[in-house]
Design a protein around this nucleic acid. Structure first.
Length: 271
DNA sequence: GGAGTTGTTTAGGA
DNA sequence: TTCCTAAACAACTC
């Protein structure tokens, strides 16, 4: 589930604990989500630290802590993978089976759950944001996400299907499978089209719709997890026998770029 | 019981 | 070399 807007919603769940102090850390050290992470260091440094602030970039999350005795910041990075979730719970929360990391604060508990464990945890103790957080691409809703940037990428990977490009986080950070299909549907572009063959107006539409879909998702899912606006492909794409909200044509489902892809054969003609 | 899954990395083939 | 596909990761649902 976690794409851009779900990730932002999860960030907000934990952000409600900012300003509060960590009293205890409970984690399942054998969980795969800790494969890039020094668990012992985390367990040593987080208790007593104060949760300062958080940030999201695409599907990545960063949580900042001030350590007990001052000195360098503590940086906790999270990726939700396919099934990761962040919740907050009462301070007496008892961790469940797939709760791999629980930060107990004075007033609440912050819980990271991930049944499939494709997610991951990073941890660092250093003055500046660590390498896994630096050099991130500009957010799609930011001014740095320019048409030029998208066009040069479409050109560079011109032989690949445009659906595959939308899933590449270095240019479309936060876009996942359903958002990629939503963007292509709104831009009326067939997902299997070669990126280099898009016309100038199609390239422009792709750029514009990427921004609109991200904004719309952030304003709905990202705020309180309610569904995206009416009329979006989102509402029908998982239904059996779903129909295009614009043309009423039966939607088509096929694997493109290794992922289940949904599109309208009338609105998104192959040409 | 088998197939499929809203993600990412990596091995290996073309 | 370069580009791209498919498998692997793990657990749940249909």
């Amino acid at each position: 589930m976690p794409e851009l807007a779900e990730v932002e919603f999860f960030r907000k769940q934990w952000e409600s604990g900012s300003g509060d102090t960590v009293t205890a850390v409970e984690l399942n050290g054998r969980a795969r989500v800790f494969r890039d992470c020094d668990i012992a260091q985390m367990q040593r440094l987080l208790p007593g630290a104060r949760f300062i602030s958080s940030e999201a970039n695409g599907k990545k999350l960063l949580f900042r802590f001030a350590s007990l005795e001052g000195g360098p910041r503590l940086w906790l990075g999270l990726h939700m993978g396919m099934t990761g979730k962040l919740t907050n719970a009462p301070p007496a929360y008892a961790p469940e089976r797939h709760d791999h990391l629980v930060l107990f604060l004075e007033k609440q508990a912050l819980v990271f759950t991930d049944s499939r464990q494709f997610g991951r945890v990073h941890f660092a103790h250093e003055p500046l944001a660590p390498s896994w957080w630096r050099h991130l691409p500009p957010a799609i809703v930011s001014a740095g996400f320019t048409l030029e940037r998208v066009e040069s990428f479409l050109k560079r990977c011109g032989r690949r299907p445009v659906k595959a490009l939308l899933l590449m986080q270095e240019v479309f950070p936060g876009v996942g499978n359903w958002m990629a299909d939503e963007i292509l549907w709104r831009a009326r572009i067939h997902p299997a089209r070669a990126a280099g063959e898009l016309t100038q107006s199609e390239r422009h539409d792709l750029w514009r719709e990427a921004r609109l879909v991200c904004r719309g998702a952030l304003r709905t899912i990202g705020e309180d997890f309610r569904d995206p606006p009416e009329g979006w492909l989102f509402h029908v794409r998982w239904q059996k026998g779903g129909r295009c909200p614009r043309s009423c044509e039966s939607l088509v489902y096929e694997t493109i770029a290794g992922r289940t892809t949904c599109w309208c054969p009338r609105c998104q003609a192959k040409r």
